[in-house]
Design a protein around this nucleic acid. Structure first.
Length: 438
RNA sequence: GGGGUCGUGGUGUAGCUGGUCCAACACGCUGGCCUGUCACGCCGGAGACCACGGGUUCAAAUCCCGUCGAUCCCGCCA
């Protein structure tokens, strides 16, 4: 039995021409004309359609209702060239399911929402009803779906690793401490250790889940809780295997969006990214040299790239390689976590990479160490103890293949794709240093 | 953690080299007009002690100090 046995959605009017139907949704717009004629725009999950109200009883039955009132309508579907979608509903009778008599904090039925981000986020529960805001999160959901679809097709298994963990994993400094039945616990800042362990079990795994970072940053591209799309696979040659996988994943997600989200992409005026079959790649020291030569900034002694450097590189990739994506490979080992595999030919540099999307860091990935002795040495050279990561290390004492993986920041992907100016706009209810509500 | 900018009706802004501001415009709300509107249009109305506290001055939305709040940049990261 169907959930909506009798309900017709606004997108389905064309197949009900001339019929008496039932619809329900929110009053998205109410437009009163003279002599009591009223146009009501009804919004449901499929879109918006127009209802023409002329009978005095019908007009009276919705008198005093403000936008966002929830109504049920019975009416006749009429083909009408003047209507936006070509169809509209006439001779309606209304049942009010939930009246609204109070004005919204800000109008949400305009093409652009006129509210500061802070104001918007305070009222996100209603602000997100705006079609343009919905579209962002439809894309977000579809991107995660595309991610899963690509990896499922390649023999990956989806996993769910714990978000409450007993020891601060990677670097230790940037985790949220919580109390756990009288013990100290932490919110996972990454599924890194667990996804590696899972490679020992399934060879290929992925996870789409929140991660928590206690970094005190306050920028347009950071959140303290975000969705990480992680993948990890065994039996790789080196980081280039991972990069090839990531390229397929990115291209796969974009194809999925093109196939399933035409309406949202159109509404948000998304310029689909340039994605050559192979994304261009630049070796970290070469990138620094290029920056020095073309922008006069000497960062060659730095162990990392600054946001401005990444912007320049993004422009370069776009113009020179017609690509909105650029791999930067071989970041210095000092800037990478202890589990990172070094470049065998140049051990100061790593077999890891970042993927820049339109000049912003979108993905970090690489090859990991897979032998126990290498872990023991890496930990020792960084002054870390084996005890702290004992469970993790057990994985490597009992046979782990060469492996690697990556993590895509979902909100960053959506931000860069749709041209949002603040990462918070790509999170439903973002968490930053100041914001815990709503 | 360091630095910059900002705070004016429910929302977004103008005013801010002090007086003509008991604060203007747009959206929203509201009374009225219009039988094809769809960011409609037209005529009215309500709604702000100009973030808060102190100071300078004959006079402060406007200048100064402090507090709080917001925002952006850097560091760091995805």
């Amino acid at each position: 039995m169907e959930v909506d046995m009798e309900r017709v959605l606004s997108s389905e009017l064309s197949s009900h021409t001339g019929e008496r139907i039932m619809m329900s949704g929110w009053m998205h717009r109410i437009r009163k004309l003279g002599s009591g004629m009223v146009f009501v725009h009804l919004r449901d999950r499929s879109g918006i359609c127009q209802i023409v109200v002329e009978a005095p009883e019908a007009v009276a039955s919705i008198d005093g209702l403000l936008v966002e009132s929830v109504i049920q309508v019975e009416g006749t579907v009429v083909a009408e060239p003047q209507a936006a979608g070509g169809y509209e509903v006439h001779d309606p009778s209304f049942t009010v399911l939930s009246p609204v008599t109070e004005a919204l904090p800000f109008p949400i039925n305009k093409p652009v929402i006129n509210a500061h981000l802070d104001t918007f986020l305070d009222h996100a529960m209603v602000g997100l009803r705006a079609p343009s805001k919905q579209a962002i999160f439809k894309l977000s959901a579809a991107a995660a779906h595309g991610f899963r679809e690509v990896l499922d097709s390649k023999g990956f298994t989806e996993v769910a690793t714990p978000k409450i963990i007993g020891s601060a994993s990677e670097s230790g400094a940037n985790v949220f401490a919580i109390e756990y039945f009288g013990k100290q616990a932490y919110l996972a800042q990454s599924p890194q250790f667990y996804k590696q362990m899972m490679v020992g079990i399934f060879e290929r795994v992925y996870e789409v889940a929140p991660v928590f970072r206690a970094e005190p940053h306050q920028t347009i591209r950071h959140l303290n809780e975000y969705v990480s799309m992680d993948a990890e696979m065994g039996f790789i040659k080196d980081q280039t295997t991972v990069m090839a996988l990531l390229t397929d994943v990115i291209r796969g997600i974009l194809s999925y969006l093109t196939a399933h989200c035409a309406k949202e992409l159109e509404l948000l005026k998304v310029a689909m990214p340039l994605t050559p079959e192979t994304f261009p790649r630049v070796y970290f020291p070469d990138a620094q040299q290029w920056i020095f030569e073309h922008h006069g900034e000497d960062c060659r002694a730095e162990p990392d790239l600054a946001p401005q450097h990444e912007k320049w590189l993004g422009e370069w990739a776009n113009e020179t390689f017609q690509s909105d994506f650029l791999f930067v490979t071989g970041y210095p080992m000092v800037k990478r976590p202890f589990y990172t595999a070094p470049n065998p030919d140049d051990p100061k540099y790593s077999n890891s990479f970042d993927l820049l999307f339109r000049g912003t860091e979108l993905v970090t990935g690489g090859q990991r160490l897979n032998k126990f002795e290498d872990y023991a040495r890496a930990l020792e050279s960084r002054g870390m103890t084996q005890e702290a990561v004992a469970a993790y290390l057990e994985t490597f004492r009992f046979g782990m293949p060469p492996h690697g993986g990556f993590a895509i920041g979902l909100e960053r992907f959506i931000m860069q794709l749709t041209g949002l100016t603040n990462l918070r706009e790509a999170a439903l209810f973002p968490r930053d240093m100041e914001r815990l509500q709503p």
